[in-house]
Amino acid sequence: MTPSALSTSDLRKHYGSGSTRFEALKGVSLDIAEGESVAIVGKSGSGKSTLMHILALLDAPSGGSVMIDGTDASTLRGRRLNELRNRTFGFVFQQFFLTPNASVLENVMLPLKIARVGSRERKRRAHEALQLLELDDKARNKATDLSGGQKQRVVIARALVNNPRIIFADEPTGNLDSATGAVVEDLLFDLNRTKGITLVIVTHDEELAARADRRIYLRDGLVVDAIDVHAPASEAVGA
């Protein structure tokens, strides 16, 4: 069995207290293997975004634990936590979150800047990532001047640039038409296959979820039915 990249046990999260208390997660246990692609599927309000935030160590659970590479995430603090986030995770968001007036290159370099990578090395790696996504000719353009599909490819380049082990994609195709969405999907699954990057996709889109190795269904803060679709998913990726 492949070692697990992320695992949770009895993960709970609630917001507010008293009458406004809201249980977003009511005890989620899951295990994501290294190199696996997993779709967390659920309607809005199912707790899927909350789960992703906790998995990406952006939020702390109210109960339960998150293990990353065999370390309890709750023991990570300050600098170590920041370094782990920086080195391990890449993010792809539905709303892109690109810095509007900065160039494409600047946007892609941001994680490396945070990681204190030197200026020359930074540029080299950013160009490399952009080349991979066939966007190198847009490096000098402003991020706002790009089309939706191009923007999302920039976001993927940014997620990729620091060689992360896990990429979290929150509705990566949500803002794209189906044709460009398909390109972005292909890119993500391709990275998962060729580079062995663990892919965690949060979506309500069944079609996208179907391409993942495994789907985790969430409803009202609980995992309802986890179906292993290993074999069919591989076929779909090959398309």
């Binding site: 990406a56 600098r79 936590l81 986030r85 920086n86 995770f89 979150f97 994680p111 945070i114 990681a115």
Partner: peptide
């Protein structure tokens, strides 16, 4: 706000 959030998610510390 979003940019700050993104930088934090990418591991930028509050002090920076």
């Amino acid at each position: 706000t979003r940019e700050i959030g993104l930088m934090k998610a990418m591991g930028m510390s509050g002090s920076r």
